[in-house]
Simulated assay, not measured.
Amino acid sequence: MMISAFRPAAAMLCCAALSFGLPAAAQAGDIAEKATLAETLLDRGYGGAALKAFDTSAAAFWTASPLQLRTVLFADAVDGFADYTPRGNSEFQPSDALRLYFEPVGFAYIEESDGFGAELAADLQIRTPGGLILATAEDFGRLEWQGRSKMREVHATIEFPLPDFKPGSYQLLLTLRDENSPKTTTVTLPFSVTE
């Protein structure tokens, strides 16, 4: 089993428990107003102020967003954020490892003495297309990010050996739980085992 979470500088972080405060949710109108202000400032030549207003709009969107995955796929290799080699197909041999790459969006942050942190818990389940559960790993791992600012370009990799399944079609369910808010998300990735 391998689980990793990376900062934009691609430094691997170890897992640790954090407690997060949950900011108030932004309203959709609030997001649009801040984005409009950014555009107006940019049109008038105030680049620095426009960037600050844009960042405020993006932060409001992030807070209001559900926990979701911008990208989630099987990968052959992962070298950093948006630096991965997608697997050519979702067919695996019984001795293969399953490697997931994903980019979470909308999780909560905690303010720390030297910046901000975030933590997600991951649950895995493998089932047949008909819904028969074959394997479950609740609280499979913890994914943690830390930085001096609220990073939005983060990714994670989860890798584990494929259980000894007979050839056929299967589904991998990945559930992420934000440890600092009530937000959760579940995605299903179909795959098959070949002879």
Rank of each mutant, 00 (worst) to 15 (best):
M1C: 08
I3E: 08
F6R: 03
P8C: 04
P8F: 01
A9Y: 06
A10K: 15
A11F: 03
C14Y: 15
C15V: 10
A16F: 10
A16Y: 11
L18P: 00
S19I: 10
G21R: 15
P23T: 09
A24F: 12
A25M: 14
A26M: 04
E33D: 15
K34F: 05
A38I: 01
T40D: 14
T40V: 11
L41E: 00
L41W: 06
L41H: 10
D43N: 13
Y46D: 09
Y46W: 11
K52L: 14
F54K: 15
F54D: 10
S57R: 02
A60T: 03
A60R: 01
A64N: 08
A64I: 03
P66D: 07
L67W: 07
Q68K: 15
L69P: 05
R70V: 10
R70W: 11
T71H: 09
T71W: 10
D76S: 13
V78K: 05
A82K: 04
A82P: 00
D83T: 02
Y84T: 07
T85D: 02
R87E: 07
E91G: 02
E91W: 00
D96Q: 00
L100D: 02
Y101C: 07
V105C: 07
V105M: 07
Y109F: 15
I110Y: 05
E111R: 14
G117V: 00
E119W: 03
L120Q: 06
P129K: 02
P129V: 05
G130I: 01
L132D: 14
L132V: 14
I133T: 09
A137R: 12
A137N: 10
G141A: 14
G141Q: 02
E144Q: 11
E144P: 04
R148C: 07
M151C: 07
A156Q: 06
T157V: 14
F165E: 05
S169P: 02
Y170F: 12
Q171W: 03
L173K: 09
L176D: 04
D178I: 02
N180T: 13
T185M: 11
T186S: 13
P190A: 11
P190G: 07
S192F: 05
E195S: 08
E195N: 10
